[in-house]
Design a protein around this nucleic acid. Structure first.
Length: 636
RNA sequence: GCCGCAGUAGCUCAGCCGGUAGAGCAACGCAUUCGUAAUGCGUAGGUCGGGGGUUCGAAUCCCUCCUGCGGCACCA
C-alpha cells in the first residue's frame, strides 16, 4: 500500500497502516508531534488504519487544522468532568466552534460560575491523566443499549438521526464515552491550554419550542501563550465596545425609560449627519430620488401589505382613536408603494429608485437588544427600485458596485455576500418564488462576486442578498441587503404602462447599504475603536491655548477653520497645555493645534495629530489648507 | 421571549454576618498663566433600579416587576 506525502514522496507499507505508523517511519519527533492525519483531504484519527493508497499529511499539534480537534477533545473532557461532578446530568452535543467549544447539558439545576472553577479543576486532572482517545464502531442496537443503560435520552435521539448506512461510532477516554463522529487527537494529555468562559441557556436542537439546556462555553489552544493572546483579544474587543466608547466620547446614551431607543447627543448626531450626508450624496449621484413617508400608518395598510399577518408580532400598534388602530411602520416599503401609486407610470420611467432615510420601529424581543446595534427604533438607508424583470440584473450589479464603493469609503474592504432563499413562512406562491429566486441568482452571478447560500433565511416577500462586512478585529456584521419582491407590488396594486399600452406589475427591489444607521455607526465606532477618520470625527480639530494671552488668536484660528468647513472648537481654559493635550487625546480628537505667544506672533500653529507625539509647526494658511484637504469626505 | 448573572454618586467600584453610605476619576468653585498625556486647594453630588414584605430597624434577608450584561431563539 502506498501513501503519498505532501512533498510528493511515497511510503510503502505491507497492508493497512495508521498515521502513527507513518509518522514513526519518518521520524521520532514527528511521531511525538502528530495529532491526526489527513487522508485524501479528510481528517482522521492517528490510529485509524488507512486501507487504501492515498495522499496523506500528518497534522501536528500547532497546525491550524489541529485546533478544532483539540477543542473537540476538550469538550469531551469537560463533559466527563461535568458528569463526574454532577451525576445525573445528561450530555447532548458538544462541538468545536470558532473561538473554542461548548457542550450542552441537560440538568435541572443551572451551573453557577463557581461550578466552572470546579469543572476546570476536574478537567485538569483528566488532562493530566493523559487518557488515550479510543474509537469504537458499534451497531445501532449496541449503541442504543449502552446509552439506554447510562440514561442518555438525548443521545438516543441523536442516534436515531444518524442516516442508515453511516457507521455509529463511540469515542472513549478511560471509562467515559460519548457518541461522536470524531476524529479526535491521540489523548487528553495533548490538550495544551484551556479555560471555561461562560454558562448560558441554549435550546435543544436550536429550537425555542424545545427544552432549554445548560451550555458551558470554553476555549482551548495548543499553548498557554495562544490562550493568553486570545484573552487579550477579548479585552481589546471590550475596549472597543461601542457602548463604552459612545459614553466616553459623549456620542449617545440609552436609558431605562426607552429600551432599544437611542438618545443621540450633539457629537453623536454630528457623526450621524456626516454619515447620512455622505450616503445622500452617493444616492443622489446614483439616480435615486429621496422621499419621506409617515411613521404612523393605519393598520389597514399593513393588513393589505401582509405585514400585519406575517410581521405583526414585531410591530407596535396603538389605538389613538376609538375607531382606528395605527401602527408604527416597521418597514418603509408599503409607504413607498403609496408614493409610487399617486401617479400612473410609464415603462420609460423605470427603473424608478425611491430612497428614504426611513425611521422604523420594531418590537424586538427584549433579549435581542444590544447597545445601538440592535434597537427598536432605527433609521434605514432604505430604497425601493421599481423596475421590470429585465432590469433586475442591471440594477443588482449597479447596487453591488455602489455598496462596495460606499463600504470602501468607510474603510471596510472585507465583505461577504449571502443568498437567502424562501423561508417557511412566506407570502406568494411557489411559482412566484421560483421566478424571484431565479432572477436574483442570475443577477448576482452576473456580478461575478462570491456568494454563500443561506437557506430559508429570505424575507417573507422575497429572496435576499445579505452583505456582511468584517471589521478590524475580525467580527462580522450584517449591514446591507438587496431583496427581490414580486409579492408587494401585487398586493398593493402597483403598476406601470408598458410599451404595449397595457398595465404591468413592476418588480420591487428593496435595498439598503448601511442597513440601519444606528447599527452601522456602532460598527464604525468599534472598527475604528472610536478614532474615526477625519471626515467623520465629530470634533475634527481643537485649538488649545498655551496661555490665555493667546486666546484671541486661538479664537481667530477657530473662526477661520470653521469658515473653511472644519468642525473646530477652542480650548481657552486656564489649564496647562499638557493637561489639554491629554484630555483631547482621550476624547479622540484627530487634530490638536496648540497656540501660544510664539504662534500668535508668527500667525502659525503647532499641530499634533492623534496617536502621534510629533509636533509640526506650520503657518495658519498652510494649516487651513491641510484641514480643508484632510477633512474632505472621500466622495468629494 | 427563554436560561444565567447584575443594578450603590456622571464613570469604575468598596460597603461580608441587618444598626441608617464611602473611595478614585469626572463635575463645579477659587488660586495658578504654565510649551505637548494629569497644577494645587476646596465644594457639591446618592428616596443604594421600582414596588411590596419580614424586622424595633433593610443597600444588606424574601417576593415581584423593570432595565442592563452573556448566551439561546429572533433579526437591519
Amino acid at each position: 500500500m502506498r501513501l503519498t506525502l505532501p512533498d510528493g514522496s511515497v511510503r510503502a507499507f505491507d497492508g493497512p497502516a495508521t498515521g502513527r505508523n507513518l509518522a514513526s517511519s519518518i521520524s521520532k519527533g514527528l511521531a511525538k508531534q502528530a495529532v491526526a492525519v489527513e487522508v485524501d483531504g479528510a481528517l482522521a484519527d492517528l490510529d485509524r488504519p488507512i486501507a487504501r493508497d492515498a495522499k496523506v499529511r500528518l497534522v501536528k499539534a500547532g497546525d491550524p487544522e489541529a485546533l478544532p480537534l483539540l477543542r473537540h477533545d476538550c469538550a469531551h473532557v469537560m463533559a466527563e468532568a461535568v458528569q463526574d461532578l454532577f451525576p445525573g446530568t445528561q450530555v447532548t452535543i458538544g462541538p468545536a466552534i470558532e473561538n473554542g467549544f461548548y457542550y450542552d447539558f441537560a440538568r435541572d439545576e443551572p451551573f453557577s460560575t463557581d461550578d466552572l472553577a470546579r469543572i476546570e479543576a476536574r478537567m485538569a486532572e483528566i488532562v493530566k491523566a493523559d487518557k488515550p482517545f479510543r474509537r469504537e464502531e458499534v451497531s445501532r442496537e449496541e449503541a442504543r443499549r449502552r446509552f439506554a443503560d447510562t440514561g442518555e435520552g438525548y443521545k438516543l435521539e441523536l442516534l436515531d438521526a444518524i442516516p442508515e448506512g453511516e457507521p455509529v461510532t463511540l469515542y472513549h477516554q478511560g471509562d467515559w464515552f460519548d457518541l461522536c463522529r470524531g476524529p479526535h487527537g491521540p489523548s487528553t494529555g495533548r490538550i495544551g491550554a484551556f479555560k471555561l468562559t461562560k454558562v448560558a441557556g441554549a435550546y435543544w436542537r436550536g429550537d425555542a419550542k424545545n427544552a432549554q439546556l445548560q451550555r458551558i462555553y470554553g476555549t482551548a489552544f495548543a499553548s498557554e501563550k495562544d490562550l493568553k493572546a486570545y484573552l487579550a483579544r477579548i479585552e481589546e474587543a471590550e475596549r472597543r465596545d461601542h457602548r463604552r466608547i459612545g459614553r466616553e466620547m459623549d456620542l449617545f446614551h440609552v436609558q431605562e425609560e426607552a429600551p432599544g431607543c437611542v438618545f443621540w447627543h450633539a457629537k453623536g448626531w454630528t457623526l450621524w449627519r456626516a454619515v447620512e450626508d455622505y450616503v445622500r450624496r452617493r444616492l443622489d449621484r446614483a439616480g435615486y430620488a429621496e422621499v419621506k413617508t409617515p411613521q404612523l400608518v393605519d393598520k389597514v395598510l399593513w393588513e393589505k401589505s401582509g405585514h400585519a399577518a406575517l410581521f405583526g408580532s414585531d410591530m407596535f400598534f396603538l389605538e389613538a382613536d376609538e375607531k382606528r388602530t395605527y401602527a408604527l411602520k416597521p418597514m418603509n416599503c408599503p409607504c413607498h408603494v403609496q408614493v409610487f401609486n399617486q401617479h400612473q407610470h410609464s415603462y420609460r420611467e423605470l427603473p424608478l429608485r425611491m430612497a428614504e432615510f426611513g425611521s422604523c420601529h420594531r418590537n424586538e424581543p427584549s433579549g435581542a437588544l444590544h447597545g445601538i446595534m440592535r434597537v427598536r427604533a432605527f433609521t434605514q438607508d432604505d430604497a425601493h427600485i421599481f423596475c421590470t424583470e429585465d432590469q433586475i440584473t442591471g440594477e443588482t450589479q449597479a447596487f453591488c458596485d455602489l455598496l462596495l464603493s460606499v463600504y470602501r469609503d468607510f474603510g471596510f474592504t472585507d465583505v461577504r455576500i449571502k443568498f437567502s432563499d424562501r423561508p417557511a413562512v412566506r407570502a406568494g406562491d411557489d411559482a412566484v418564488w421560483d421566478q424571484a429566486e431565479g432572477a436574483l441568482w442570475d443577477a448576482i452571478r452576473a456580478t461575478g462576486l462570491d456568494v454563500i447560500l443561506n437557506p430559508g433565511e429570505g424575507a417573507f416577500y422575497g429572496p435576499k442578498l445579505e452583505f456582511v462586512l468584517r471589521d478590524a478585529i475580525g467580527r462580522d456584521w450584517q449591514c446591507g441587503t438587496l431583496q427581490v419582491d414580486i409579492v408587494l407590488p401585487e398586493r398593493l396594486g402597483a403598476s406601470y404602462i408598458g410599451q404595449d399600452g397595457a398595465k404591468h406589475r413592476p418588480v420591487m427591489l428593496h435595498r439598503a447599504i448601511l442597513g440601519s444607521l444606528e447599527r452601522f455607526i456602532g460598527v464604525l465606532i468599534e472598527h475604528y475603536a472610536g478614532r474615526l477618520p477625519l471626515w467623520l470625527a465629530p470634533v475634527q480639530a481643537v485649538v488649545a491655548t498655551v496661555t490665555n494671552e493667546a486666546d484671541a488668536y486661538a479664537l481667530e484660528v477657530v473662526q477661520r477653520l470653521q469658515a473653511a468647513g472644519v468642525r473646530a472648537v477652542a480650548d481657552t481654559r486656564a489649564d496647562k497645555i499638557g493637561y489639554k493635550v491629554r484630555e483631547h487625546a482621550l476624547a479622540k480628537v484627530p487634530l490638536l493645534f496648540a497656540v501660544g505667544a510664539r504662534e500668535a506672533e508668527a500667525k502659525s500653529v503647532s499641530l499634533r495629530r492623534l496617536g502621534s507625539q510629533a509636533q509640526e509647526s506650520l503657518s495658519l494658511d498652510d494649516a487651513l489648507a491641510l484641514c480643508q484637504r484632510d477633512t474632505m469626505p472621500p466622495d468629494a
